[in-house]
Simulated assay, not measured.
Amino acid sequence: MYEGIVQDLIDELGRLPGVGPKGAQRIAFHLLQADPVDVRRLADVLVEVKARVKFCSVCFNVSEADLCRICADPRRDQTVLCVVEEYKDVVAIERTREFRGRYHVLGGAISPIEGIGPEQLHIRELMTRLADSQLTEVILATDPNLEGEATATYLTRMLKPLEIRVTRLASGLPVGGDLEYADEVTLGRAFAGRRSAE
């Protein structure tokens, strides 16, 4: 335990996701030893990002304008919509350069244990968006965990009456992985989603 403001800094850093007590302590001491100009620049960026960044009024991705760059891009395919849990998922999919459609960010996944139901997510906005568009396919790209599966199942039921093609991302073994290290669910999905050899 440190005293005063140093401990306050460690405590605040420890509240960040993925930062444990030791990591928070390392970051705090790095900041204490850093040049004051660098620390001021970091502080300014933190304040500025909170002031300027908001969520896209259409898809709920992060943006500095009313529309994010993807929604504002007329070259994107408006007939395909990829539904993701978080805005960081958009970045992951964009890095693949495989998807040219649009997105809808739910803002999380259904998790009764954490008290998150459909009403806490952007599902109502998704349904409104689907009613007012020329979409032919909705890709459900939720995480392959219990909450993601529950969310995908819920959305599939909601979308069925709309007669829009609903697909799910394939899941299975990672490239370069070993079968012996795969869990049962992943290996089972790899068998269920197998395709013909080329």
Rank of each mutant, 00 (worst) to 15 (best):
E98K: 14
G18C: 14
C82F: 05
L46P: 01
D178R: 10
T96K: 01
P17L: 12
R165P: 10
R95C: 01
G14K: 08
E180F: 07
V53C: 05
R194G: 06
E119D: 14
Y103G: 00
R129F: 01
I93P: 01
A34D: 04
V19E: 04
C82Q: 01
A51T: 15
V62Q: 06
T79V: 05
G4L: 05
R124N: 07
L140V: 08
S57R: 10
E64F: 03
A51R: 15
Q78M: 00
P21K: 14
V105I: 02
V138Q: 11
R52T: 12
I116C: 09
R157G: 15
L162W: 14
Q120T: 06
S196K: 09
G14H: 12
L121P: 04
P36K: 08
L121E: 00
V37P: 08
Q78A: 02
R189E: 13
A34P: 07
D178H: 08
R15D: 11
F191T: 09
Y103I: 00
T79I: 06
E86K: 02
R157C: 11
P21F: 09
I10L: 13
V83E: 02
R102V: 02
G108V: 07
G117C: 02
A34Y: 08
L32G: 09
C68S: 01
R102M: 00
F99H: 05
I139W: 09
G14S: 10
L173I: 10
R15T: 07
I93F: 07
M1G: 15
G101Q: 03
S196H: 07
D183S: 10
A65N: 15
E125N: 06
Q78K: 04
E12I: 03
R69Y: 11
I116A: 03
E64Q: 05
K54H: 09
L155M: 09
A197W: 10
M158D: 07
E86N: 12
R194K: 13
G4P: 07
E114F: 10
V62Y: 02
A170Q: 08
V45Q: 14
V83Y: 01
V185H: 10
E147N: 14
R76S: 00
G117L: 04
T151D: 05
I93Q: 05
L13H: 12
S133P: 09
E94P: 03
L162I: 11
F99C: 02
L130S: 06
G23P: 08
I10T: 13
R195N: 07
R76L: 00
R157F: 09
P174A: 03
V84C: 00
V175T: 14
E184T: 15
K160I: 06
L187P: 07
D11K: 11
R189H: 15
R100F: 08
I113P: 09
K50W: 06
E64W: 01
V39P: 09
